[in-house]
């Protein structure tokens, strides 16, 4: 189950979220972010995103 939502219109595909993900659930593929099932909804990615492009789904 994907538990975060990346707004691709805001995302600057910088990869900062990938670097902080403790589960290694994120991947920056060229110009978009992919999320796999190991995401725990911890919200660190949403916190540190420079442009606020990530939302944790409730």
């Amino acid at each position: 189950m994907v538990t975060i939502n990346v707004n691709k219109f805001k995302c600057g595909y910088c990869g900062a979220c990938v670097g902080v993900c403790p589960a290694g659930a994120l991947e920056l593929v060229e110009t978009w972010i992919e999320v796999n099932e190991t995401c725990t909804s911890c919200g660190i990615c949403a916190k540190i995103c420079p442009v606020g492009a990530i939302e944790v789904k409730k």
Binding site: G15, G19, V20, C21, L26
Partner: peptide, 23 residues
């Protein structure tokens, strides 16, 4: 780079805590 996966694949934990990254 900052989004490095290579270390993690080899068992080196390179994940950054929020206080370890300038956004």
């Amino acid at each position: 780079g900052v989004e490095s996966k290579v270390g993690r694949w080899a068992g080196i934990d390179t994940s950054l805590k929020p206080a370890d990254i300038e956004t």
